[in-house]
């Protein structure tokens, strides 16, 4: 804010003898900048949306009244076959469990990788301080690669199944959690670490006994949040690639009319699972973070 108040050029100060004039000048300048930014933003949004609409197969207004056509059609069919729904639910439970397992294993493996990467990339804790940039860039690179890229390539190499999705999500999780973990670890109190160093503990003992207990609640909270995200990612990867409830959904969708009861069942299963996981993890995250502050 300093440069706004005193003008962009260093050294040029407003005339303080006439502070009313200076204040109005400042307000005018702020308004002008804000106005210009607003106009640019509106122009970008308007041209962006119209461009996106041009390149879309269907237009916005033609499609708008159809938004509910598909859900209505689907639900109408499912309503007629309501008595079949519980059976379909049960039939898709294994696929749902597979999706959840993919997310859980990927979160677990990613978190384990993130723990070591983040400790190695945190100033003050790193085993080899000179290599901090190397580990940071590694995490950046892991975060940068979209999951779908790794998943599709691995499906080609490893064949179908859940493993490509696990590896893809785990790599991404490693990078994303690594960054968050390292931010938490940066704020850790170094006194326990010094105390442990003074009694001759080696690096891994210092980390395990000195740092991990301090940061564990926050780390767990981030890992839970990541698990929520990974459940969604695992469903989407199933739809694009193979395995889990996403794949079932794709097959049911491709079948189209006649299998809409299955589509509804899968939608509902996915929705309920995500809501339940969100609520549970929200609850525990609050507990974890509040507990550590108390």
């Amino acid at each position: 804010m300093v440069d706004v108040a005193f003008g962009p050029e260093q050294g040029q100060r407003p005339d303080l003898s006439n502070n009313r004039e200076a204040y109005l000048d400042l307000v005018r300048r702020k308004r002008m900048y804000g106005g210009i930014l607003l106009v640019i933003f509106i122009a970008l949004m308007a041209s962006g949306w119209s461009l996106a609409e041009d390149r879309n197969a269907g237009g916005f207004l033609e499609g708008l009244h159809q938004i509910f056509d598909f859900p209505a059609e689907v639900f109408a069919e499912a309503w007629q076959k309501l008595d079949l729904l519980p059976g379909i639910f049960i039939a898709h439970i294994p696929a749902l469990i597979e999706t959840l397992n993919i997310a859980a294993v990927a979160t677990l493996l990613g978190a384990i990788a993130a723990v070591s990467l983040s400790l190695l990339a945190t100033r003050g804790l790193a085993r080899w301080p000179r290599l901090i940039p190397v580990f940071r860039r590694t995490m950046d690179a892991l975060r940068a690669v979209p999951e779908i890229v790794i998943a599709l390539v691995l499906i080609y190499i490893l064949g179908g199944g859940p493993v490509p999705a696990v590896i893809a999500i785990a790599l991404h999780t490693g990078g994303a959690l690594g960054k968050l973990f390292s931010e938490v670890a940066e704020n850790a109190d170094l006194k326990p670490v010094e105390g442990l160093a003074s009694v001759g503990a080696n690096w891994s003992q210092r980390m395990w006994l000195g740092v991990i207990p301090q940061v564990a609640p926050n780390w767990l909270s981030y890992a839970l949040l990541r698990f929520e995200i990974n459940v969604r990612a695992s469903a989407i990867l199933g739809f694009v690639g193979e395995g889990g409830i996403g794949h079932d959904l794709k097959i049911a969708m491709q079948w189209g009319q006649g299998r809409y009861d299955e589509v509804v069942a899968i939608f509902l299963l996915l929705f309920l699972t995500i809501v339940v996981i969100d609520q549970v993890s929200d609850h525990y995250r609050h507990k974890l973070v509040k507990g550590s502050q108390a």
């Binding site: 949306w49 390149r55 269907g58 916005f60 938004i67």
Partner: peptide, 23 residues
Amino acid sequence: GVDGLIWTIILSRAFGPGPMTGA
């Protein structure tokens, strides 16, 4: 809660494939 995946499927039925649907 209705995941991005489900929204994407519903919307692409209404608007057809393309960037606007994704947006």
